[in-house]
């Protein structure tokens, strides 16, 4: 419950910058103030108000957003949001300045590496930004432009439009892979149309909560997708500490209350 106030915000941001500069000395990528958007987007001011009003926020090149410079299929743009270079990431959000629905998802890494692979829909060329809140309460923002002109011979998929999802709604297809250096990688795909609500006559219908728990029921990590996440969402997460051969439970629900519940193994 931080009182809003630009002086306090600037001060906090300034302190955060100084601290980060000190810790990142030699890394060559100190966080910078938000006066100048490195992605030069006219929407940055609005984004800052919408997501970080009254909270300290800095740009930080240690947050890596990996995706295609040109989206071959604008309805399935693969993005990896990696804030694992920051210590103590408690929460991450992903948004695209120029999407009609700006925010794409929220991720609480918990026991997972602070890095998430997923796919989003992009309405038009836009910065895709990742903001990570660290334990000190500071939001650190990284991003990349994705252009959506696509290839000359490729058409965006208009979604499968197949009735398949009605039989397989919230079905989870997933596997675990052992990681070099220990731990397990989880890759999964969940059958869901992820309707945006922007098409006439089709209300928003999307997965809104996914929890990943270990065999004892302890929640390891949490993903809260929103409408811009691509149809049949797929996610990639890495867990450094889970035991080899373990099972993970994936559970959650969509905004109509339909349950997701599955176990994933190697």
């Amino acid at each position: 419950m931080r009182p809003p106030g630009s002086t306090r915000r600037l001060l906090l941001a300034g302190i955060a910058s100084l601290l980060a500069c000190a810790t990142a000395a030699g890394a060559g990528t100190p966080p910078v103030s938000t006066a100048e958007d490195p992605l030069d987007s006219p929407r940055w001011g609005d984004m800052q108000k919408q997501f970080f009003d009254a909270q300290p926020v800095v740009f930080d090149a240690r947050i890596k957003v990996t995706g295609p410079a040109v989206a071959e299929d604008p309805l399935n743009v693969p993005i990896t949001a990696d804030a694992s270079a920051l210590p103590g990431v408690e929460e991450m959000i992903v948004f695209a300045d120029f999407n009609p629905i700006v925010k794409a998802l929220r991720f609480e890494p918990g026991a997972a590496r602070a890095s998430l692979g997923f796919r989003i829909k992009l309405q038009q060329s836009s910065p895709v930004r990742v903001a990570a809140r660290t334990a000190d309460g500071v939001w650190r923002v990284g991003g990349a432009w994705v252009t959506t002109t696509g290839g000359g011979c490729t058409l965006p998929s208009l979604g499968s439009g197949s009735p398949e999802w009605q039989d397989r709604l919230n079905e989870v297809n997933g596997r675990l892979w052992p990681r070099i250096g220990g731990g397990e990688r989880l890759r999964m795909r969940i059958i869901h149309p992820m309707d945006t609500g922007l098409a006439a006559g089709i209300p928003a219908f999307h997965i809104e909560d996914i929890s990943i728990a270990d065999e004892s029921g302890r929640v390891l990590s949490r993903i809260q997708p929103l409408e811009p996440v691509a149809e049949n969402p797929s996610f990639t997460l890495d867990f450094a500490e889970v035991a080899p051969g373990t099972r993970l439970q994936v559970s959650g629900r969509d905004n109509n209350g339909n349950r997701i519940d599955a176990w994933v193994t190697r």
Binding site: P74, T148, G159, G161, T196, A199
Partner: peptide
């Protein structure tokens, strides 16, 4: 892309 291109039907 028209907004409803984000939806199949």
């Amino acid at each position: 892309l028209p907004p409803h291109a984000l939806r199949s039907q």
